[in-house]
Structures are given as structure tokens and as C-alpha cells.
Design a binder for these strands. Structure first.
Lengths: 140, 140
DNA sequence: AATAAAACCTATCGCATTACTCGGATAAGC
DNA sequence: GCTTATCCGAGTAATGCGATAGGTTTTATT
């Protein structure tokens, strides 16, 4: 039950942008240095976030990235889902259908109920925390 | 955020033993067939569960495995932790210490708080469900 | 106009882990 | 002594992760 660095770095980078929200484009390089992430690797991650519409980019000198929405409107769950795909402790949860390709007896599978509860619990936590919440935390 | 098959198969096997609790040793082969798990692979998993004290084994013909405790006394969380190690969405949670080898700024790391909440949430769900609960579910 | 700073893009690659398989050794009931 | 089991250690194919490499385009600044 590990998060990959994609999710972790993604949240760290978005948190960094949230701290500088409203200051114009923030260069990827500065984010990489502050958050201690490989610059080239972070580039790929920012590409994913841009394609998903959470950040916009400005090319050329003095360019960089900025959030497309207010920090309060972006949750940690939004970021994790974009970076890692939907939360699903087991593959059989990837379709809503109880009868699916991953498990024939999904309908009457007892353990499936456990994974559903785990998934919902994780989503509940991740969706309830916004980037603005993290910025608030920082001030203390 | 995926569970490995170790955890999934481990829970499935233990649930199977719980269904047959009190019937004497259950052969690994029969568990493997019912739960659709590779017999040889399940063998390794049962070894882990045995060393952790959750099952006892009887060798030789008519041998097999049985739970060492009542199904109500073993939680899904117990099994997952033995099969997959402690729940820790990120490595920096592997030590309780806020100052640790994984992250220098653990003490004042904002995102760390998110992962702590996720971990606690997962543990809460897994620890609250016992094998007996799963058996109850089956009857419906 | 030249330069430098930045985003953008595609490919590759070592490494670790996962999910097994294989081949036996040991133990116990019949 | 045969069969049915658990026990044990090694090996292995496939996968994904976490980068690295090497470029191209775009744009502000000088």
C-alpha cells in the first residue's frame, strides 16, 4: 500500500505552487530545488498536471507554471488521482460493475466489501484536504 | 495505492480457514482450489502466516492448516500487516520519529500530515473488520 | 538580432519488486 | 512402504518505477 513518487512529488509541487499563488509563473527549476525533486522528472509530472487542467504554463524566459484555480478549489485527492490513477486497493474495483473482467464472483465476493471500504476511506481523507488547507498548516 | 496479491490472497486464505474453523486441519490444496490461488505460491504465504502465529499446521497425510485463534480475534488488518508490512503510504512514516532517515524536514513537513491521516484511516478500516465479520457477511 | 531561460517532447535504461514456478526434503497417516 | 501432505530455498519472467539523456520550441531580455 505505497504511494509512488508521482503522487508524492505531484502533491509537493502543487503545494509549492499554492504557496506562490498569485505571483505569476513559477519556474519548474525553483520548485524542483525547493522540493528536492529531479528537475527532468518533475517536468514529466507537470506535463500530466497541465494536461489535466490543474496548472497552466508560460513558455520562454521568465516562464513557469501556475495553478489554474484557487488553492481551496484543488484537493490532494484531485492530484493523486491524476498522478496515480483512481484509488483502487485491488483491480476488481476498477469497474463499478459488480460483474467484471477481474473477478467472476465479484457479485458475491465477501472480501470485495473490505476493499470498497478501504477505498472509500482513503478517498474521504484525500478529498477533504485542499491545497489551501496545507498552506494554512504551514503558517503555524 | 495497490494491495499486492500477498495481502489479497492472505485474506482470502484466512477467510477460507475461518469458514472451516473447528473442522480440523484444512489442506492447502483445497484452499488453493476454492480461492483460485496457485498452490505453490499459497504455500509461501501460509509459511508467513504460520511464522506470525495466526495459523498452525499439521504435517503428513490428512494434514493442513487451521487458525490458532477464533475468527473474531483475527482482523483483516492483522493479516495485511503480516503479509505486506506496516501500512505506510510513504516511507517517511516507517519510523514514528518525526526526525528520521527518510526525510530531513519530517518535523515541519506539511504533506506528511496528509499521509498520516491516510494511514490512520486505512488502519481504522482494516482493524475494525474481523474474519468472523466476513463469515457473517457470507451467510446473507 | 543574439542570447539565455524556460517549457516541451520522446526515448531509453537500470533496478527492484512481484508473482510466480521448480525441485526437492521431511513428516505422518494408512 | 506408499501416499498425502507440509516445508524449504532457489530461480525467473514480466512489470513498473524513477529517473536520465538529448534534443526542439518559445519568449523575455540585452
Amino acid at each position: 500500500m505505497k504511494l509512488s513518487t508521482k503522487g508524492r512529488y505531484g502533491v509537493a509541487a502543487m503545494y509549492d505552487l499554492a504557496l506562490h499563488y498569485g505571483e505569476g509563473p513559477i519556474s519548474l527549476k525553483s520548485v524542483a530545488i525547493r522540493q528536492e525533486i529531479s528537475e527532468h522528472y518533475l517536468e514529466q509530472l507537470m506535463g500530466t498536471l497541465r494536461k489535466s487542467g490543474y496548472v497552466k504554463s508560460v513558455r520562454g524566459a521568465q516562464g513557469g507554471y501556475a495553478l489554474t484555480k484557487e488553492p481551496s478549489q484543488i484537493s490532494v485527492g484531485d492530484i493523486i488521482k491524476v498522478m496515480e490513477g483512481p484509488i483502487a486497493p485491488v483491480d476488481c474495483l476498477l469497474t463499478d460493475d459488480t460483474a467484471n473482467a477481474y473477478c467472476q464472483r465479484a457479485g458475491d465476493c465477501v472480501t470485495r466489501g473490505v476493499w470498497v471500504k478501504v477505498r472509500d476511506s482513503i478517498n474521504g481523507v484525500l478529498d477533504s484536504i485542499s491545497l489551501a488547507d496545507l498552506c494554512e498548516e504551514e503558517k503555524k
